[in-house]
Design a protein around this nucleic acid. Structure first.
Lengths: 152, 152
DNA sequence: GATGAAATCCGAGTCAC
DNA sequence: GTGACTCGGATTTCATC
Protein backbone atom coordinates (compact mmCIF):
# COMPACT_ATOMS: atom_id res chain seq x y z
CA UNK A 1 0.00 0.00 0.00
CA UNK A 2 2.90 2.35 0.59
CA UNK A 3 6.44 2.64 -0.68
CA UNK A 4 9.37 2.51 1.69
CA UNK A 5 12.86 3.72 0.93
CA UNK A 6 13.85 0.40 -0.66
CA UNK A 7 10.80 0.30 -2.93
CA UNK A 8 11.55 3.77 -4.16
CA UNK A 9 15.14 2.93 -4.91
CA UNK A 10 14.00 -0.13 -6.81
CA UNK A 11 11.57 1.99 -8.84
CA UNK A 12 14.25 4.51 -9.66
CA UNK A 13 16.67 1.80 -10.73
CA UNK A 14 14.12 -0.05 -12.85
CA UNK A 15 13.02 3.20 -14.39
CA UNK A 16 16.48 3.85 -15.73
CA UNK A 17 17.23 0.24 -16.57
CA UNK A 18 14.34 -2.13 -16.99
CA UNK A 19 16.66 -5.00 -17.86
CA UNK A 20 18.31 -5.18 -14.46
CA UNK A 21 18.29 -8.77 -13.31
CA UNK A 22 16.70 -9.53 -9.99
CA UNK A 23 20.11 -10.51 -8.66
CA UNK A 24 21.67 -7.19 -9.67
CA UNK A 25 18.77 -5.20 -8.32
CA UNK A 26 18.98 -7.07 -5.02
CA UNK A 27 22.64 -6.18 -4.69
CA UNK A 28 22.04 -2.52 -5.46
CA UNK A 29 19.39 -2.13 -2.79
CA UNK A 30 21.04 -4.43 -0.24
CA UNK A 31 18.42 -7.10 0.20
CA UNK A 32 18.41 -10.79 -0.61
CA UNK A 33 17.32 -11.90 -4.08
CA UNK A 34 14.25 -13.55 -2.60
CA UNK A 35 13.11 -10.38 -0.89
CA UNK A 36 13.90 -8.32 -3.94
CA UNK A 37 11.86 -10.65 -6.08
CA UNK A 38 8.85 -10.47 -3.81
CA UNK A 39 9.03 -6.70 -3.66
CA UNK A 40 9.35 -6.36 -7.42
CA UNK A 41 6.31 -8.59 -7.88
CA UNK A 42 4.33 -6.33 -5.61
CA UNK A 43 5.40 -3.23 -7.52
CA UNK A 44 3.89 -4.78 -10.63
CA UNK A 45 0.82 -6.29 -9.02
CA UNK A 46 -0.15 -3.12 -7.20
CA UNK A 47 0.37 -0.97 -10.27
CA UNK A 48 3.42 1.02 -9.24
CA UNK A 49 5.07 -0.20 -12.42
CA UNK A 50 2.67 0.01 -15.34
CA UNK A 51 4.86 -1.82 -17.80
CA UNK A 52 8.40 -2.28 -19.02
CA UNK A 53 9.07 -1.19 -22.54
CA UNK A 54 11.93 -1.13 -24.98
CA UNK A 55 12.46 2.37 -26.38
CA UNK A 56 12.89 2.04 -30.12
CA UNK A 57 14.98 4.76 -31.78
CA UNK A 58 12.37 6.51 -33.94
CA UNK A 59 14.73 7.49 -36.78
CA UNK A 60 15.77 3.87 -37.27
CA UNK A 61 12.21 2.86 -38.07
CA UNK A 62 11.50 5.79 -40.36
CA UNK A 63 9.78 8.06 -37.88
CA UNK A 64 12.26 10.87 -37.62
CA UNK A 65 9.89 13.85 -37.61
CA UNK A 66 7.94 15.17 -34.65
CA UNK A 67 5.12 17.67 -34.85
CA UNK A 68 3.15 19.20 -32.02
CA UNK A 69 -0.38 20.29 -32.84
CA UNK A 70 -2.80 22.47 -30.91
CA UNK A 71 -6.39 21.56 -31.70
CA UNK A 72 -9.58 23.55 -31.19
CA UNK A 73 -12.91 21.79 -31.52
CA UNK A 74 -16.04 23.22 -33.11
CA UNK A 75 -18.24 22.75 -30.14
CA UNK A 76 -17.53 22.16 -26.48
CA UNK A 77 -19.99 19.40 -25.85
CA UNK A 78 -19.23 16.09 -24.15
CA UNK A 79 -19.99 14.26 -27.40
CA UNK A 80 -17.54 16.42 -29.33
CA UNK A 81 -14.78 15.55 -26.92
CA UNK A 82 -15.69 11.89 -26.85
CA UNK A 83 -15.78 11.67 -30.64
CA UNK A 84 -12.48 13.39 -31.05
CA UNK A 85 -10.80 11.29 -28.38
CA UNK A 86 -11.91 8.00 -29.80
CA UNK A 87 -10.65 9.05 -33.21
CA UNK A 88 -7.30 9.96 -31.65
CA UNK A 89 -6.99 6.57 -29.98
CA UNK A 90 -7.28 4.91 -33.38
CA UNK A 91 -4.49 6.93 -34.98
CA UNK A 92 -1.12 5.38 -34.19
CA UNK A 93 0.94 8.36 -35.34
CA UNK A 94 -0.56 10.38 -32.52
CA UNK A 95 1.69 9.46 -29.62
CA UNK A 96 0.38 11.86 -26.99
CA UNK A 97 -2.93 13.64 -26.63
CA UNK A 98 -3.72 15.92 -23.72
CA UNK A 99 -6.96 17.71 -22.99
CA UNK A 100 -5.89 21.12 -21.77
CA UNK A 101 -7.24 24.36 -20.39
CA UNK A 102 -6.21 27.44 -22.35
CA UNK A 103 -6.14 28.52 -25.96
CA UNK A 104 -6.49 24.98 -27.26
CA UNK A 105 -8.73 22.08 -26.42
CA UNK A 106 -6.07 19.45 -27.11
CA UNK A 107 -2.35 19.28 -27.59
CA UNK A 108 -1.08 16.42 -29.72
CA UNK A 109 2.35 14.99 -30.29
CA UNK A 110 2.70 13.28 -33.62
CA UNK A 111 5.43 11.17 -35.18
CA UNK A 112 5.78 10.80 -38.91
CA UNK A 113 8.49 10.05 -41.43
CA UNK A 114 8.96 13.59 -42.72
CA UNK A 115 7.17 16.81 -43.60
CA UNK A 116 5.53 15.36 -46.68
CA UNK A 117 4.15 12.63 -44.49
CA UNK A 118 2.84 15.18 -42.03
CA UNK A 119 1.24 17.26 -44.76
CA UNK A 120 -0.64 14.23 -45.93
CA UNK A 121 -1.70 13.44 -42.39
CA UNK A 122 -2.71 17.03 -41.78
CA UNK A 123 -4.83 17.37 -44.89
CA UNK A 124 -6.31 13.93 -45.16
CA UNK A 125 -6.73 12.94 -41.55
CA UNK A 126 -6.30 15.62 -38.94
CA UNK A 127 -8.55 18.38 -40.24
CA UNK A 128 -11.16 15.86 -41.29
CA UNK A 129 -11.42 14.46 -37.77
CA UNK A 130 -14.83 14.88 -36.16
CA UNK A 131 -15.37 18.28 -34.62
CA UNK A 132 -11.99 19.81 -35.45
CA UNK A 133 -12.27 23.54 -36.10
CA UNK A 134 -8.64 24.52 -36.07
CA UNK A 135 -5.29 22.78 -35.91
CA UNK A 136 -2.20 24.83 -35.25
CA UNK A 137 1.03 23.12 -36.22
CA UNK A 138 4.36 23.41 -34.40
CA UNK A 139 7.12 21.63 -36.24
CA UNK A 140 9.73 20.30 -33.87
CA UNK A 141 13.21 21.38 -34.80
CA UNK A 142 15.01 19.77 -31.89
CA UNK A 143 14.09 17.32 -29.15
CA UNK A 144 15.91 18.74 -26.19
CA UNK A 145 14.36 16.28 -23.75
CA UNK A 146 11.92 13.48 -24.32
CA UNK A 147 10.39 11.27 -21.70
CA UNK A 148 12.77 12.05 -18.86
CA UNK A 149 12.54 9.65 -15.91
CA UNK A 150 10.20 10.65 -13.11
CA UNK A 151 11.89 12.46 -10.27
CA UNK A 152 10.63 11.34 -6.85
CA UNK B 1 22.38 -2.20 -41.04
CA UNK B 2 18.82 -2.88 -42.08
CA UNK B 3 15.81 -4.44 -40.44
CA UNK B 4 14.08 -7.45 -41.91
CA UNK B 5 10.57 -8.61 -41.10
CA UNK B 6 11.74 -10.60 -38.09
CA UNK B 7 13.72 -7.70 -36.61
CA UNK B 8 10.70 -5.46 -36.89
CA UNK B 9 8.45 -7.97 -35.21
CA UNK B 10 10.98 -8.29 -32.42
CA UNK B 11 11.09 -4.52 -32.00
CA UNK B 12 7.33 -4.30 -31.87
CA UNK B 13 7.11 -7.08 -29.31
CA UNK B 14 9.84 -5.65 -27.11
CA UNK B 15 8.30 -2.24 -27.37
CA UNK B 16 5.08 -3.48 -25.84
CA UNK B 17 6.74 -5.83 -23.39
CA UNK B 18 10.37 -5.25 -22.53
CA UNK B 19 10.40 -8.13 -20.08
CA UNK B 20 9.86 -10.81 -22.69
CA UNK B 21 12.43 -13.52 -22.16
CA UNK B 22 14.62 -14.47 -25.06
CA UNK B 23 12.91 -17.85 -25.14
CA UNK B 24 9.43 -16.33 -25.38
CA UNK B 25 10.50 -13.85 -28.00
CA UNK B 26 12.07 -16.61 -30.06
CA UNK B 27 8.82 -18.55 -30.03
CA UNK B 28 6.76 -15.52 -31.04
CA UNK B 29 8.90 -14.78 -34.08
CA UNK B 30 9.55 -18.42 -35.00
CA UNK B 31 13.32 -18.59 -34.76
CA UNK B 32 15.58 -20.57 -32.47
CA UNK B 33 16.55 -19.01 -29.12
CA UNK B 34 20.17 -18.71 -30.23
CA UNK B 35 19.26 -16.79 -33.36
CA UNK B 36 16.85 -14.63 -31.46
CA UNK B 37 19.53 -13.84 -28.93
CA UNK B 38 22.01 -12.76 -31.57
CA UNK B 39 19.43 -10.59 -33.28
CA UNK B 40 18.39 -8.94 -30.05
CA UNK B 41 22.02 -8.21 -29.25
CA UNK B 42 22.38 -6.50 -32.58
CA UNK B 43 19.26 -4.41 -32.03
CA UNK B 44 20.88 -3.04 -28.90
CA UNK B 45 24.40 -2.70 -30.22
CA UNK B 46 23.37 -0.89 -33.37
CA UNK B 47 21.07 1.46 -31.50
CA UNK B 48 17.68 0.29 -32.70
CA UNK B 49 16.74 -0.12 -29.07
CA UNK B 50 17.89 2.85 -27.03
CA UNK B 51 17.03 1.43 -23.65
CA UNK B 52 14.51 -0.59 -21.73
CA UNK B 53 12.67 1.21 -18.99
CA UNK B 54 10.05 0.49 -16.38
CA UNK B 55 7.15 2.92 -16.61
CA UNK B 56 6.35 4.09 -13.12
CA UNK B 57 2.74 5.17 -12.51
CA UNK B 58 3.15 8.89 -11.83
CA UNK B 59 0.27 9.24 -9.35
CA UNK B 60 1.73 6.53 -7.15
CA UNK B 61 4.87 8.56 -6.59
CA UNK B 62 3.08 11.84 -6.00
CA UNK B 63 3.36 13.28 -9.50
CA UNK B 64 -0.25 13.32 -10.55
CA UNK B 65 -0.38 16.70 -12.28
CA UNK B 66 0.73 17.48 -15.82
CA UNK B 67 1.18 20.94 -17.26
CA UNK B 68 2.17 21.91 -20.76
CA UNK B 69 3.96 25.22 -21.15
CA UNK B 70 4.69 27.26 -24.24
CA UNK B 71 7.81 29.36 -23.78
CA UNK B 72 8.99 32.43 -25.67
CA UNK B 73 12.54 33.64 -25.20
CA UNK B 74 13.67 37.25 -24.99
CA UNK B 75 16.15 37.04 -27.79
CA UNK B 76 16.63 34.59 -30.60
CA UNK B 77 20.36 34.17 -30.35
CA UNK B 78 22.23 30.87 -30.23
CA UNK B 79 23.39 31.69 -26.71
CA UNK B 80 19.84 32.31 -25.56
CA UNK B 81 18.77 28.91 -26.79
CA UNK B 82 21.82 27.18 -25.38
CA UNK B 83 21.35 28.80 -21.97
CA UNK B 84 17.71 27.91 -21.81
CA UNK B 85 18.29 24.34 -22.91
CA UNK B 86 20.99 23.64 -20.40
CA UNK B 87 18.77 25.00 -17.64
CA UNK B 88 15.97 22.73 -18.83
CA UNK B 89 18.21 19.68 -18.72
CA UNK B 90 18.89 20.33 -15.05
CA UNK B 91 15.24 20.51 -14.06
CA UNK B 92 13.87 17.00 -13.45
CA UNK B 93 10.20 18.05 -13.40
CA UNK B 94 10.52 19.03 -17.06
CA UNK B 95 9.95 15.71 -18.78
CA UNK B 96 9.84 16.89 -22.39
CA UNK B 97 11.24 19.96 -24.09
CA UNK B 98 10.87 20.60 -27.80
CA UNK B 99 12.25 23.47 -29.82
CA UNK B 100 9.47 24.38 -32.21
CA UNK B 101 8.62 26.64 -35.11
CA UNK B 102 5.54 28.76 -34.56
CA UNK B 103 4.14 30.99 -31.85
CA UNK B 104 6.46 29.58 -29.22
CA UNK B 105 10.12 28.86 -29.05
CA UNK B 106 9.73 25.81 -26.82
CA UNK B 107 6.98 23.52 -25.67
CA UNK B 108 7.51 21.87 -22.29
CA UNK B 109 5.79 19.02 -20.55
CA UNK B 110 6.04 19.22 -16.80
CA UNK B 111 5.08 16.82 -14.00
CA UNK B 112 4.41 18.03 -10.51
CA UNK B 113 2.41 16.94 -7.50
CA UNK B 114 -0.43 19.41 -7.85
CA UNK B 115 -1.33 22.97 -8.82
CA UNK B 116 0.29 24.48 -5.76
CA UNK B 117 3.47 22.69 -6.71
CA UNK B 118 3.22 24.04 -10.23
CA UNK B 119 2.59 27.57 -9.05
CA UNK B 120 5.74 27.42 -6.99
CA UNK B 121 7.65 26.04 -9.94
CA UNK B 122 6.20 28.65 -12.26
CA UNK B 123 7.00 31.62 -10.05
CA UNK B 124 10.29 30.55 -8.54
CA UNK B 125 11.88 28.60 -11.36
CA UNK B 126 10.28 28.83 -14.76
CA UNK B 127 9.94 32.56 -15.24
CA UNK B 128 13.32 33.15 -13.66
CA UNK B 129 15.04 30.90 -16.18
CA UNK B 130 17.59 32.62 -18.38
CA UNK B 131 16.08 34.41 -21.35
CA UNK B 132 12.44 33.57 -20.70
CA UNK B 133 10.13 36.35 -21.83
CA UNK B 134 6.82 34.61 -21.66
CA UNK B 135 5.45 31.29 -20.43
CA UNK B 136 1.95 30.28 -21.37
CA UNK B 137 0.48 27.57 -19.18
CA UNK B 138 -1.86 24.80 -20.32
CA UNK B 139 -3.11 22.72 -17.42
CA UNK B 140 -3.75 19.18 -18.47
CA UNK B 141 -7.21 18.01 -17.51
CA UNK B 142 -7.00 14.56 -19.05
CA UNK B 143 -4.25 12.42 -20.53
CA UNK B 144 -6.01 10.81 -23.42
CA UNK B 145 -2.84 9.19 -24.73
CA UNK B 146 0.69 9.27 -23.42
CA UNK B 147 3.71 7.71 -25.02
CA UNK B 148 1.94 5.39 -27.41
CA UNK B 149 4.19 2.75 -28.99
CA UNK B 150 5.77 3.63 -32.31
CA UNK B 151 3.85 2.40 -35.30
CA UNK B 152 6.10 1.01 -38.02
C1' DG C 1 4.39 -10.20 8.30
C1' DA C 2 8.59 -9.71 6.39
C1' DT C 3 13.15 -11.73 5.86
C1' DG C 4 17.18 -14.60 4.11
C1' DA C 5 19.23 -19.33 3.07
C1' DA C 6 18.99 -23.14 0.44
C1' DA C 7 17.29 -25.99 -3.27
C1' DT C 8 15.26 -26.54 -7.85
C1' DC C 9 14.34 -25.21 -12.34
C1' DC C 10 14.77 -22.81 -16.46
C1' DG C 11 16.64 -19.44 -19.57
C1' DA C 12 20.86 -16.77 -21.08
C1' DG C 13 24.85 -17.03 -23.36
C1' DT C 14 28.40 -19.67 -25.91
C1' DC C 15 30.09 -23.29 -28.32
C1' DA C 16 30.61 -26.48 -32.62
C1' DC C 17 28.39 -27.52 -36.67
C1' DG D 1 20.83 -20.31 -39.07
C1' DT D 2 20.39 -24.65 -35.67
C1' DG D 3 21.20 -27.79 -31.69
C1' DA D 4 23.56 -28.89 -27.48
C1' DC D 5 25.82 -27.76 -23.36
C1' DT D 6 27.05 -25.00 -19.23
C1' DC D 7 26.50 -21.55 -15.95
C1' DG D 8 23.93 -18.28 -13.45
C1' DG D 9 19.74 -16.22 -12.22
C1' DA D 10 14.65 -16.71 -11.38
C1' DT D 11 11.47 -18.64 -8.46
C1' DT D 12 9.76 -21.53 -4.57
C1' DT D 13 10.12 -23.51 -0.12
C1' DC D 14 11.05 -23.19 4.41
C1' DA D 15 12.94 -21.87 8.83
C1' DT D 16 13.56 -17.64 11.40
C1' DC D 17 13.18 -13.20 13.67
Amino acid sequence: MTLDRIDKRMLRLLQSNGRLTNAELATQVNVSPATCHRRTQRLFEEGYIQSVRALVAPETVGLGAVVMVGVVLDRSTPESFANFESAVLDLPMILDCHLVAGDFDYLLKIRVADMADFNRFHGEVLITLPEVRQARTFFVMKEVKDGAPLHF
